[in-house]
Design a protein around this nucleic acid. Structure first.
Lengths: 336, 336
DNA sequence: TCAGATAGTGCAACCGTTCCCACTAAATGC
DNA sequence: GCATTTAGTGGGAACGGTTGCACTATCTGA
């Protein structure tokens, strides 16, 4: 059963002083006599006093909390981004309220409402693959609560964003496939709702164009990121009369799943078909064959976004900067 | 810049009624006339009103928040447990405050303090590998705030715990190695501070004993879960005059790292040495060779723990039940 | 000696809600 | 037709802190 909470009033009564003085002693206010301060501090420890942040937040109109909305929690990507967020938040004295949407738009709306009600001082968001309407996020803007997007960003809101250079990454990946002799490079793309899908697709297209390879639309398949679909689409590609000799996938989980399908069909990687992923997930180096992929500075995405947000919270300046972090092509055995 | 928040008082003034009535209309209190209720609800939407949960929590002395402390966030294990926690919490109307310790005891203490100050209604904890003192968690008990442990539990606190049958899992894994002809089974164990390490070690020992295999202490190495050490210890084992022909690892990341080392030395898996992990992480099926491992019902751990906690919060009954979930040996190519 | 500074403290308002109590007016019972 | 219930509302304390202001007592300097 929940016990009575020790409050500053309890301390005040014991010492026969006012709660104002207790508050001042506890918060390090200068105008408290050394003896009083000592007595308060000692009694506080002895009584196991813990301040109630709810009331502090209420009176100060600041919760020192930042909200985070991520689309999913299964891949290693978002947990790692959160690691970066937490590191920065912690050192700046903020608590992080993490919510997760299971790729559902409705869940995203619910989470936004929750964070709003929780009086977060700022919001970090990465969108679900379903999100097309942004009203639930624009409320934050209207209320003057800073918002920063990362990874999966919203293109019609003028707020700071942290992304990696998806175009460049995809371009380099495709270029790598071409320069290692591939002629028919397929692309298993993400849903067009996500800007990252579109940019990676653009990078892929431009690389082909640049190297004078005609774009074959039948080799481009956009899918909804549900893993079961990968089997279907990869099989479809492998069944084409003029089979692709390389496959560039929207992300690492997709690539890894694709590799399983290709292996099942007893095709050799990379001899028969090369595979490239995107994001360099933790386990991508360990699979067989090890996966060539585009590495993103995952934790940096989180820490940069957090820094941008906290800066905005504390200075009230809100230039809608777009921080674009560099990617790096990591060549492994799935392509060479 | 943060704008003025819309409060029930703003609504009250606009409609020329008292804030009590507005509050009642908003919370669905029966004694409000239909017209008043309608007017309030409409104006609330129109004004973009969002309740301030801080004040609600303050006055009700209940935050509808549960705190979670996990030791790390890199492996897929804890994020997945959290998924299970969130699912249950959400349907019961609770928000989840997640904190992460990077395996540091000090961070754990800081996180506990933070959650206490945030007035969580209950606490879910999995300990860091360093934790030996539990004062920071016992405070919750003293204050009457329910605590439930999961996975890495504390043996000297009488509270509910959710674990998997580590002993049984380790026993089965070791048994599997023995029955497939292995004679010298090594064990790369976790730190003795963790009960899971000790239990898995016990299961390993008992399986050997049961099958009449003398226990060779030189084949048992306890390490601190920092990946770099795996290289050293595995190499040490492989350099032994009488090399082991099987290796049972405390968890999957360890096993995967061990496999890398073994492959570097051009030994064959499983012919020269078989490898078994524990926990069936997401990627363990995809590595080469695919990893034989003991699967845990990861999300169930989270959902069970959350259910236990919420039940305790809402009924005030606190039987220190220990829920032990079943494990399952998954045989893959690293052993057969 | 006395004005003025200063250290230390207490009072009370405030943050945004809930909820008990009191009140009025209409509805009901007899 | 009058007492009693009841529906609907408002007033105000409470939750646990912070903080501006007022106040007293001591100290400073000319």
């Amino acid at each position: 059963m929940k016990k009575h909470q020790i409050t500053i009033l309890d301390i005040a009564r014991q010492l026969n002083i006012s709660k104002s003085t207790v508050s001042r002693a506890l918060t390090g206010h200068p105008k408290v006599s050394p003896e009083t301060r000592k007595a308060v501090l000692e009694l506080a420890v002895q009584m196991d006093y813990q301040p109630n942040m709810l009331s502090v937040s209420l009176v100060k109109n600041k919760s020192n909390t930042i909200g985070v909305i991520v689309p999913e929690f299964m891949s290693s990507f978002f947990p790692q981004v959160i690691l970066g967020i937490q590191q920065v938040a912690r050192t700046s004295g903020y608590t992080v309220l993490i919510t997760q949407c299971s790729e559902s738009y409705e869940q995203e709306v619910a989470n936004a409402r929750l964070l709003l009600a929780s009086q977060v001082d700022g919001l970090l968001v990465s969108l679900t693959k379903e999100t097309l309407n942004y009203d639930h996020l624009k409320i934050f803007q209207r209320k003057g609560i800073p918002v920063v997007f990362f990874n999966r960003v919203c293109e019609d809101m003028e707020v700071p964003k942290v992304i990696v250079d998806d175009y460049e990454g995809a371009y380099r990946a495709t270029e790598h496939l071409i320069t290692t002799g591939r002629k028919r490079v397929a692309h298993l793309a993400g849903p067009a709702t996500l800007a990252i899908s579109r940019k990676r697709l653009d990078g892929y297209r431009d690389a082909l164009r640049r190297y004078g390879i005609a774009i074959d639309e039948s080799l481009i398949i956009s899918y909804d990121l549900t893993m079961e679909k990968v089997d279907i689409y990869v099989n479809h590609l492998l069944n084409l009369a003029n089979r692709p000799d390389a496959l560039f996938c929207i992300n690492d989980p997709t690539a890894i799943q694709a590799i399983q399908v290709i292996k099942q069909r007893s095709l050799r990687i990379p001899e028969d078909i090369a595979v490239v992923g995107f994001s360099n997930d933790y386990y991508s180096a360990f699979i067989e064959p090890s996966l060539t992929t585009v590495a993103q500075p995952v934790q940096d995405v989180g820490s940069t976004a957090a820094r941008l947000l906290i800066n905005q919270i504390e200075t009230d300046c809100d230039k809608p900067i777009i921080k674009q972090l560099k990617t790096e092509l990591i060549v492994r055995r799935s392509t060479v």
